[in-house]
């Protein structure tokens, strides 16, 4: 059945020849910024995220400790070694549904994009992809030298040659579906903090 439909669709598409145009070359020099780091921070804040800088992991811990959400968090998980107060072993979780109780999660982000305030993360950093969405507060630590100018440069870096889930995260989960009023914390994290290390 499915076989037949595949053939029908492809045949009907082949039956109609459209005039082809060349696939355009893309220009990665679009949208460059004098200070990508400042631009990233500014855009991230504008989409409801928070951008911090830290000198080292100790500094990260010190800054996290000042956050009320962190102080109040009951269950804290991390895939970054050396984060204080971690009491939830995300690596040991078999069923992602158990992650529902998790209040705080700290992970590494691979790189950040100055143009749109997004951070690239993937399954490579976590045992369950649900972690990115199910946790109440998300912290991403990104090496400060890993900021590209724009999405064109981002896709130059990315390779999709094996089965893996990856995503761009730009800010906390949000919605404006009720009268266009922006509300932070729709289904996913209520806050996103990016720490440039």
């Amino acid at each position: 059945m499915a076989e037949t439909s595949r053939d029908t669709i492809l045949q009907s598409l082949r039956a109609a020849r459209l005039e082809s145009v060349e696939l355009p070359e893309l220009d990665p020099s679009w949208s460059q910024f004098a200070d990508p780091r400042a631009r990233f921070a500014q855009v991230l804040e504008s989409v409801g995220g928070r951008c911090l800088s830290a000198a080292d992991l100790q500094d990260v811990n010190r800054q996290l400790a000042q956050r009320t959400e962190f102080q109040q968090a009951k269950w804290i998980g991390s895939t970054v070694a050396g984060v204080d107060r971690v009491n939830f072993d995300v690596m040991g979780v078999g069923d992602p549904h158990e992650l529902e109780q998790l209040d705080f999660f700290v992970a590494m982000g691979q790189f950040a994009i100055a143009e749109n305030g997004a951070v690239w993360v993937s399954d490579a950093q976590v045992p369950h992809r649900a972690l990115w969405f199910i946790v109440q507060h998300l912290v991403l630590i990104v090496p400060a030298d890993q900021i590209v100018h724009n999405l064109h440069q981002a896709y130059q870096r990315l390779r999709f040659d094996h089965a893996e889930f990856g995503l761009l995260i730009a800010g906390p989960s949000k919605t404006a579906d009720i009268e266009q009023s922006l509300v932070i914390g729709a289904h996913g994290p209520r806050s996103l903090t990016v720490i440039l290390l």
Partner: peptide, 18 residues
């Protein structure tokens, strides 16, 4: 669509969940 620089989540699904 909404004037955002990018949507909050842009998920790239390559293959099924493990």
């Amino acid at each position: 669509a909404t004037g955002q620089p990018i949507t909050t989540y842009t998920s790239h699904f390559h293959g099924p969940i493990p």
